[in-house]
Nucleic acid binder design. Structure first.
Lengths: 228, 228
DNA sequence: ACTATTTTGATAGTAAAACTAACAAAGAAG
DNA sequence: CTTCTTTGTTAGTTTTACTATCAAAATAGT
């Protein structure tokens, strides 16, 4: 069974829906590759236009600017990941198993278990690691937040927090712990790649250590509170 | 006793030492205010030049580009903070007290207890919250890292990790926990201000909750491991 | 098959950002 | 008081980030 799932994102993320046309899909697909290759700062619509043999003006018809494209991409990622989370923990009884499953998903690339991912999954994961913070660390957070552009991120965070509370209903910092874990999963990976003295993960692909660290931390935090 | 301490930073951060001249100090002081006011993306050397009644070209004599200026500022912050940490935990016997002290310092603005801070402390703290990630989340991390530009950050992380190990020598993830705490302290604050559903801190200045959350998490993690 | 509409391409343009160069004026140092 | 360093002034280039206009191509409606 091969199914292709498409994720419908907030309309305010784009001017014209990139999933609705050939050109739009090329913008996304090559956009992801090029952002990952050049880094978000050096990435421009002009370079992307050359890459996909179209014009700057055509790309501007889909996205207001490159920041919106980035936001689209990471939002897509968070939406897809939430979907994976829901699917993966479905039918699991134990909160402990669910939480471990989520931590695994957070620390690893997406897989195609739920339908083919059209994008380069490695590139996408790298963008999330390297650039996703820039999606909200900007002067227009509040405006973007009002337009619900961060909803998928917040939804996933809420879902993880709910799992924490399922494990321990008395834990006081479920949201903070959830967002900490979501962020930490990424920058521990970044540190392992670039600033290894800031992490205990060894080497570039030691996602195992990152996952163990997070599991250890999460269950310690959730269990400590249980005692009190 | 009023003493003015100056922090000597890595020479590669600048072209000409900004602490060595009147103009240099104005660049730093007003640079901090303007970056915080406009956000790093909208901040330009031209706007700063107008602000301090000098010219773009003059500013370029001190800093290669605005990214370097940002790096200078956050590096200054980390250096100062490490100094505060050392000073504050000096003579404390209990690792538990030391760790709490550090978590307090991480979650609050700098104070002048160690000499007058020439810069706007609120603006500086806000820059660290909003922009500091951008200092290392760039394509030239590795190059900058080779030039030791992140040393103060890594030193502080190492120092915190050492305290964790002092508390529990068997803990396996001291570095990861230290960097997680350093980062989390900041983005929990950011979330409280802009994306409140991602944190349990209530309101814009609820540093108390952030500190409690981190304390709870750190001691849980360090103690859980003790049991095994 | 023909026409209306939408989508894309091509071209061209502007404003601002991100620099660099060259020289003169002012200040400080010897 | 003259030499060296720092700053100011002006002017320039390249790139980015966009916008406008119109024609060509593709698509859809009847």
């Amino acid at each position: 069974m091969e199914l292709k799932l498409s994720i419908r994102l907030n309309e305010k993320l784009y001017l014209r829906d990139p999933e609705s046309s050939e050109l739009g899909r090329r913008i996304l697909k090559s956009g992801i590759e090029l952002i990952q290759k050049l880094g978000f700062e050096a990435f421009t619509f002009k370079k992307l236009a050359e890459e996909i043999h179209t014009t700057e003006a055509s790309i501007y018809r889909y996205f207001e600017n490159k920041h919106r494209l980035l936001l689209y991409i990471v939002t897509w990622y968070w939406s897809y990941l939430e979907y994976q989370v829901v699917f993966n923990i479905n039918n699991l009884a134990e909160p402990i198993t669910k939480i471990k499953r989520v931590l695994h998903l957070l620390t690893h690339e997406l897989d195609d278990s739920l339908g083919t991912v059209d994008f380069d999954k490695k590139a996408l994961f790298n963008i999330v690691i390297n650039e996703s913070n820039k999606a909200y660390l900007s002067k227009d957070v509040d405006e973007n937040n009002s337009a619900l552009l961060f909803k998928p991120y917040k939804d996933l965070c809420a879902r993880i927090a709910a799992l924490f509370l399922e494990y321990n209903p008395n834990y006081k910092y479920a949201r903070s712990l959830a967002s900490t874990v979501m962020e930490s999963a990424h920058f521990q990976y970044f540190f392992a790649q670039h600033l290894p003295r800031l992490t205990d993960a060894k080497g570039k692909d030691d996602t195992a250590t990152i996952q163990s660290f997070l599991e250890n931390m999460v269950f310690a935090a959730l269990s400590a509170e249980k005692i009190d």
